[in-house]
Structures are given as structure tokens and as C-alpha cells.
């Protein structure tokens, strides 16, 4: 068993069912990050190199509209944020902002991408987990689009 700087990582629901080698591979790309309230974690169009596991606090996924910034959703402890590093053009699609002091574990997406290319078993396991998160996110966004509290006349 590899000694880990991030014991909580293997306990995260996202990693449930992954073998030790895979967890170790991911952990080797991990680092701690902290963002104070109001700080930007990512900006739309910037190179996207990170996958974050939120441990504490809250981040907002923001669409930078010309007149005002629209918050599309917020994510908090236990959620993950950032998958633009997975697909070309590897650029952030939205702004990410800390709306409440944030502690996160950042994973270097470029290294992880490279590991996935080498080890398709790892790549598939990771992709399966990420796509589930993406689908949940998409479903929630669809429900949000329905504007269920509004009166249709």
C-alpha cells in the first residue's frame, strides 16, 4: 500500500471501486489549493489544466455575460469541478469563483491525461466516473432550464 499525502482521496465516493494503483497514480498529481472568498479559480478561455475536489467552502460556475455575471450553479464540499482539461481545446468554458473560502485538492490534468493515455484501464475507470458526474450535472441543468417555479400562462 502506497503511503499517501491525501488519505481522504481514496475515501471520496468518486474513487470508490478504483484499485490502489489507480488511486496512487491520481494522488501523484494532487496538490492542496486554497482560495479566499471572491477569488477567481479559473477564467473562461484560459488553459484548463485542473480537476478540483472541493473539500470545504463553495465555488460558483459563472457565465461572464456582458452586463452581469450569471451564476449557473454552485458546488461545495464533496463536489468536483473542472473537466475542460479532458477534451480539446483544453480551455475553461466558464469562470470559476470562490464564493466562500475554499479548500480544494487540485489534480494536474495534463499529467493525468498523459497517464490515462498510457494506461487505458485507468483512463476508462476515470472517464466512467467523470461522465457520471457530467450526466448528473446536465440533468440538473435541464431541470433548472424548466424554470419550474415560474407560472406558465
Amino acid at each position: 500500500m502506497t503511503h499517501s499525502r491525501y488519505p481522504e482521496l481514496s475515501e471520496h465516493a468518486f474513487f470508490a471501486g478504483l484499485d490502489n494503483a489507480a488511486v496512487a497514480a491520481i494522488q501523484s498529481c494532487a496538490r492542496d489549493c486554497h482560495y479566499a472568498t471572491g477569488n477567481w479559480i479559473a477564467r473562461q478561455g484560459a488553459p484548463a489544466d485542473d480537476l478540483y475536489f472541493i473539500q470545504d467552502g463553495r465555488v460558483a460556475v459563472v457565465f461572464p455575460a456582458p452586463q452581469r455575471e450569471l451564476t449557473i450553479q454552485t458546488l461545495s464540499a464533496g463536489d468536483i469541478v473542472g473537466w475542460s482539461w479532458l477534451m480539446p481545446p483544453h480551455e475553461w468554458q466558464f469562470d470559476i469563483k470562490a464564493v466562500k473560502d475554499c479548500s480544494m485538492m487540485g489534480i494536474d490534468g495534463r499529467s493525468l491525461r498523459a497517464k490515462c493515455e498510457q494506461d487505458h484501464h485507468l483512463g476508462y475507470a476515470l472517464m466512467k466516473r467523470l461522465s457520471r458526474v457530467m450526466v448528473d450535472r446536465l440533468q440538473a441543468t435541464r431541470l433548472q432550464l424548466m424554470d419550474v417555479y415560474e407560472n406558465r400562462k
Partner: peptide, 15 residues
């Protein structure tokens, strides 16, 4: 469900 950046609470459907 809908907020601009002045709101620092949760944004997203209740589910």
C-alpha cells in the same frame, strides 16, 4: 435556480 454574482449562496436545483 437563477442568480447573479451578488448572491453567494447555493445556485442549482434543490434536488
Amino acid at each position: 435556480d437563477h442568480a447573479d454574482s451578488r448572491w453567494n449562496g447555493n445556485v442549482g436545483v434543490v434536488t
